[in-house]
Design a protein around this nucleic acid. Structure first.
Length: 153
DNA sequence: GACGACTTGTTAT
DNA sequence: ATAACAAGTCGTC
């Protein structure tokens, strides 16, 4: 009973945004931010849309201010929360994160593949030591995102 | 350097 | 229980 109340409260509300690359719908981003309130909701989705547009124009956008609810295991949460802090334009390896969190690179990749909100949690900034690594929506998207952030053609 | 086998922590079934 | 992975390391050639 108590647990049920906590859960229904923590679901709050969600904002969905479709992300397009080359006129192709690539994935859906889901956000949440604060308690149920339609006024705030519409306002936040507008801000989010603006942020996304800015991001795809190649401008630096800080998504840390969005509060993402993660319905995941503690391990996945800790990986995702670490990845959130990687600044725009920076790149780290799976092994690097594994060392910090005292786990294995493979486990890090596994956790990253469960990322519900690409871009907002910038999992594309995590690469393998010898190459790009993977990306659940396709590695070419990861390449595009990094090109965008690193200002390569 | 390129390739392969072995290690690895976590999730999914 | 065990298979499946968005990886890394060390060995051989």
């Amino acid at each position: 009973m108590w647990q049920e109340m906590i859960e229904s409260f923590s679901i709050r509300w969600k904002v969905y945004v479709n992300v397009y690359i080359r006129n192709e719908r690539v994935f859906k981003v889901c956000f949440s931010n604060g308690p149920v309130n339609e006024f705030i909701q519409s306002k936040v989705s507008k801000i989010l849309k603006k942020d996304m547009e800015k991001y795809f124009e190649g401008k630096k956008v800080d998504f840390v201010r969005y509060d993402v609810i993660l319905n995941k295991s503690n391990f996945v949460k800790s990986v995702l929360n670490y990845v959130r802090k990687i600044p725009y334009g920076n790149v780290v390896t799976y092994g690097f994160i594994a060392k910090i969190l005292n786990t294995s690179p493979r486990a890090v990749g596994r956790a990253l593949s469960l990322n519900p909100v690409p871009i907002v949690i910038p999992c594309h900034r995590v690469v393998s030591s010898n190459g790009l690594g993977g990306f659940s929506q396709g590695v070419w998207i990861k390449r595009e995102l990094l090109k965008l952030e690193l200002n390569l053609n």
